[in-house]
Design a protein around this nucleic acid. Structure first.
Length: 493
RNA sequence: GGCCCUAUCGUCUAACGGCUAGGACACCAGGUUCUCAUCCUGGAAAUCGGGGUUCGAUUCCCCGUGGGGCUACCA
């Protein structure tokens, strides 16, 4: 009874249909990503449609934000709306421009008696529902105006409802959840349009998916309960039923549907924080899906290659920022220093540390200093702050735990002497280390010299190694900071 | 309330009736390091409960319980 997901090697046509009533968030991106993966894996077509029928809440800015965010993530589509306009042969792809198409099918249903006008007031509908809830019945509207013939004036105030005479149950196969059955009569005479010129969601979706030749509907499981309504409409209109794939929801830490109160949900926020698009792509793909082997860090191409609907999880999954942080760190470490510097530079510029003219080679060394220490690009600012301004610290910090003030004092003056003798041609991490290490070893406990050196340079308990830092800082700045440390130590005693 | 979905370590998950229930993140301990980070080694940590089916259930069925979604003239 259940047909294969892909029949006769027919490449699928899938769609993503965001409504531009808010910025791109994690959940939307995940649905788009899975549509993309599915389409690419089978060599199909990914269509982007804009469900902007809610004129009150839809804006061009939101649509722009969604499209741009998806592109940034590396999710591309073959057909549909674009920032500039749209492309493809099944348009228009914005529901706000498809009123004529909807009207055609609406009139067909009306003419065939499969839809009718209803002018019950919202008070009446509400009262009906309250009664039903009180009687422990399914809330729905079974309209008494089914066979009435309203005049034009009434029609202008009425909404169009589907005449639901179905007595059987509606069963559809979901390729993640299995067979799902609803009792059709519990759906009532559901609404499909506000008058003739404003189609409502369930109706618009059905018409769009048919006219855009969509073969597979891949969407969040919050749409499962809409599916029987859409199937009833497909049958009334003589449309083909697409195959359904309902994705488990992404949950917040308290297991409810992910929303703003769980923290950052907008893709743009993650972008600002410095999550790399390829890391986010990888991470989101792993929410509710997993490859056959245990490898988790996988580039886009590999994910596309391994993607399969069968491996999609049935239960919702919590969005775990901790694991994202780890993964982003992995990607940061795996990124070439030139590319990483290009990506990190804007953060340093915004912090006022550098500008667009700052020497590229030098900046790469700065970024390299912290490459294995940061988990998101925004952390580069705090991590490298000591490079760009004199460190502030307590003099006591200069003294290593296994050392004392006297040893620290002599270590600093020894260092000053050695460093002054290093000539410009040897001023690099390796060259500096070559002359300092033997002396540090000679003290018997090299930490008694290396620790104060590092603290003098950074003012921090934890930091990169001193030699790399000295190379970045330059000889003059290094000497200045060491001299400053000496002064501080004097004040300390 | 009604309808639907769902249930393995804290989290993401593996084990398509048959091993000491495996991996990853986080956590803890140890090693490496002047320090932090990286890296390496080790550790603690789970099959919601009750009935069935079966020689045998994490796995299949039923009933509970928990969690979630939907319940608009939003999408």
């Amino acid at each position: 009874m259940t047909t294969p997901l892909i029949e006769d090697n027919q490449p699928p046509r899938v769609r993503m249909a965001p409504s531009p009533t808010g910025n791109l968030h994690i959940g939307t991106a995940r649905t788009a990503l899975f549509n993309y993966l599915f389409a690419k894996h089978y060599g199909g077509t990914f269509v982007m449609r804009s469900e902007d029928t809610d004129l009150e809440r839809s804006t061009k800015e939101f649509e722009h934000n969604i499209l741009e965010g998806l592109e940034w993530l590396g999710i591309v589509w073959d057909e549909g709306v674009t920032v500039e306009g749209e492309r493809g042969e099944h348009g228009p792809y914005r529901q706000s421009q498809r009123a004529d198409t909807y009207r055609t099918y609406l009139e067909q249903l009306l003419k065939e008696g499969k839809a009718f006008y209803c002018w019950h007031t919202s008070d009446e509908l509400q009262a009906e529902q309250q009664d039903q809830v009180a009687n422990k019945e399914a809330p729905r509207h079974v309209c008494s105006y089914r066979d009435s013939q309203p005049d034009e004036a009434v029609k202008q105030q009425a909404i169009v409802r589907f005449r639901n005479d179905a007595k059987d149950s509606v069963t559809f196969h979901d390729y993640v959840k299995g067979d799902i059955t609803f009792k059709a009569e519990l759906l009532g005479d559901f609404s499909i349009a506000k008058r003739l010129d404003e189609a409502l969601y369930n109706f618009a979706v059905v018409v769009d998916d048919e006219t855009m030749r969509i073969t597979h509907v891949v969407r969040g499981e919050d749409h499962i309960s809409n599916t029987p309504k859409q199937i009833l409409l497909q049958e009334a209109l003589g449309f083909v039923r697409p195959k359904y794939v309902h994705l488990p929801l992404i949950l917040g830490s308290d297991r409810s549907k992910l929303s703003k109160r769980h923290g950052a949900t907008a893709i743009a926020q993650y972008r600002e924080l410095g999550y790399l698009p390829r890391a986010l792509f990888n991470f989101i793909a792993l929410i509710g899906w997993h490859p056959a082997d245990t490898q988790e860090i996988m580039p886009k191409e590999l994910i596309v290659e391994h993607f399969s609907i069968e491996a999609i999880q049935q239960a919702g999954a919590i969005f775990d920022v901790e694991k994202l942080n780890w993964m982003n760190g992995e990607y940061i470490r795996a990124t070439g220093i030139a590319e990483l510097t290009r990506e990190a530079r804007p953060y340093l510029v915004a912090a006022g540390f550098v500008d667009e003219q700052t020497d590229e080679a030098w900046l790469q060394k700065v970024v390299a200093l912290e490459q294995q220490r940061i988990h998101k690009l925004s952390e580069i600012v705090e991590a490298t702050a000591f490079i760009f301004s004199q460190p502030q610290y307590e003099p006591a910090l200069l003294i290593w735990k296994k050392s004392d003030e006297g040893k620290t004092r002599s270590a600093l003056s020894q260092l000053l002497g050695i460093i002054q003798g290093i000539d410009a041609s040897s001023w690099n991490a390796g060259g500096i280390e070559a002359v300092i290490m033997p002396t540090a070893e000679a003290t018997g406990d090299r930490g008694s010299m290396l620790w104060p050196l590092r603290v003098a340079l950074t003012g921090r308990k934890g930091s990169p190694g001193p030699f790399e830092i000295m190379e970045v800082l330059g000889k003059e700045q290094t000497l200045e900071r060491l001299a400053r440390a000496q002064e501080l130590l004097l004040q300390f005693s």
